[in-house]
Amino acid sequence: MADKNYYTVDPQGKLRCLKCGVPLEKGKAKFLYLDNGFPVELPVCPVCGFVYVPEELALGKVLAVEKALEDK
């Protein structure tokens, strides 16, 4: 089955996990809110699995979806 992603952020080698000392890679993640889930691709550390949510994403798309769900 084709993988569905609502949103993709590619770190393009510009982000680095300070704990593991490796660049973050585009990886599979999921946003969860009020019993709803959204598969996305975000910068993820290939070693420890830390997922990075950039400021623009948090204040843009994420906030908009939060607000929409809150009024469901």
Binding site: K28, A29, K30, Y33, V44, L59, L63, E66
Partner: peptide, 12 residues
């Protein structure tokens, strides 16, 4: 900044 959504890693 902040967000209320939780973000988790997804397998597969």
């Amino acid at each position: 900044y902040s967000h209320r959504m939780q973000v988790v890693r997804r397998q597969g």
